[in-house]
Amino acid sequence: MSDTTHHIVPYRTYALILLLLLVLTGASVAVTQIELTRWATVVALLIASTKSGIVLAIFMHLKFDQPVYRVMTISVVLLLIVVIVFTFFDYGFR
C-alpha cells in the first residue's frame, strides 16, 4: 500500500522480451544442430546465460527493483562461477 514506487511493466515489454527469448532459443538450437563441434557448446551456454540474464532482469523485475536484489543475485552467480572454475582447475589438471 505504502509501496507507491511499485513499477508497472507494460504488456508490450513482456511480449517483446518473449520474442527475444524465442529468437535466442531458435539460435541455440540452430547452432548446435549444424554441429560447429566445440564452439557449439560455448555458444549454446553463452546464449543460455544471456537468456537467464534477460529473465532475471525483466520477468523477475531485477531491473526495476531495489539494488539489494541485484547485489544478492550477482553474489550468488559469482559464487557459482567460483565453484565451477575451482572444480575444473581440479578435474582439468589431474
Partner: peptide, 25 residues
C-alpha cells in the same frame, strides 16, 4: 508476484537444462 518469481526460477533452471541435456551432444 512471489508465485511469479518462483515460476521464473523454474523457467531459469530449464533454460540451462535444455542445452546441457538436449543440445550439446
Amino acid at each position: 508476484e512471489n508465485g511469479g518469481l518462483y515460476w521464473h526460477l523454474v523457467d531459469l533452471i530449464w533454460i540451462f537444462l535444455f542445452p546441457l541435456l538436449y543440445l550439446i551432444t
